[in-house]
Computed example of a mutant assay.
Amino acid sequence: MPPIMEGPYQIPSAPGAPPPMPEPPRMPRGRLWASLLAPPFATGASLGLVVLLDQAHALSGNDWIPWLLMVVTGAVMLVSLIQFILLVSRRYIGGSIALLILGYLVGQAVVCFAVFFGGCLLLMAGSGF
């Protein structure tokens, strides 16, 4: 009888046994890390840009710049969410993908709010508050 699996753990096949399950498809790690790191990076970069522009007094009368940065950050978050969904849908189905997407949304919200409020607190501490 031929073995079911190759390698160090060979199990002899029993008569009438189902064939072995195929290995699940792999997810590209680089794109997965990019979808996880892009929203916090965009949040920190937009906060840093607003701080730099405020220190250079370039924001006086230009209230549309912070709003534009918020829209760009939101677009980065949306694109990252879509990329994450496309990546994990190759490997997971059903309730597990719904739980992964919910976890992604909650995790990104926590991390992005922490980056934003941490940056605001550092800005307040630097200005002598």
Rank of each mutant, 00 (worst) to 15 (best):
M1P: 07
P2G: 11
P2N: 00
I4V: 14
I4C: 08
M5S: 11
G7I: 04
Y9D: 14
Q10H: 07
I11Q: 08
P12F: 10
P15L: 01
G16S: 09
G16M: 00
P18M: 10
P18S: 11
P19W: 01
P25V: 12
M27K: 02
P28S: 00
R29G: 13
G30Y: 03
R31T: 08
R31Y: 06
L32E: 05
L32Q: 02
W33Q: 07
S35N: 09
L36T: 04
L36I: 13
L37M: 13
L37C: 07
F41A: 15
F41M: 13
A42N: 03
A45Q: 03
A45G: 11
A45N: 05
S46I: 02
S46E: 00
L47R: 01
G48W: 05
L49G: 02
V51Q: 10
V51H: 00
A58G: 08
A58Q: 13
S60C: 01
S60L: 12
G61H: 08
D63F: 10
W64C: 01
I65Q: 02
P66K: 01
M70Y: 00
V71D: 11
V71E: 09
V71I: 15
V72K: 06
V72F: 10
A75K: 05
A75R: 11
A75G: 05
L78Q: 01
L78K: 11
L78P: 02
V79S: 09
S80R: 04
I82C: 03
Q83V: 04
I85E: 06
L87D: 05
R90H: 13
G94W: 11
G95E: 14
A98D: 03
L99T: 13
L99G: 11
L99Y: 06
L100S: 06
L100I: 03
L100K: 10
I101K: 12
L102E: 08
G103R: 05
V106W: 00
A109D: 12
V110E: 06
V110L: 15
C112N: 14
C112V: 12
F113Y: 02
F113M: 14
F113N: 11
A114E: 12
A114S: 15
F116I: 09
F117T: 14
G118S: 03
G119D: 05
A125R: 10
A125L: 13
S127M: 01
F129R: 04
F129T: 09
F129Y: 09
F129H: 06
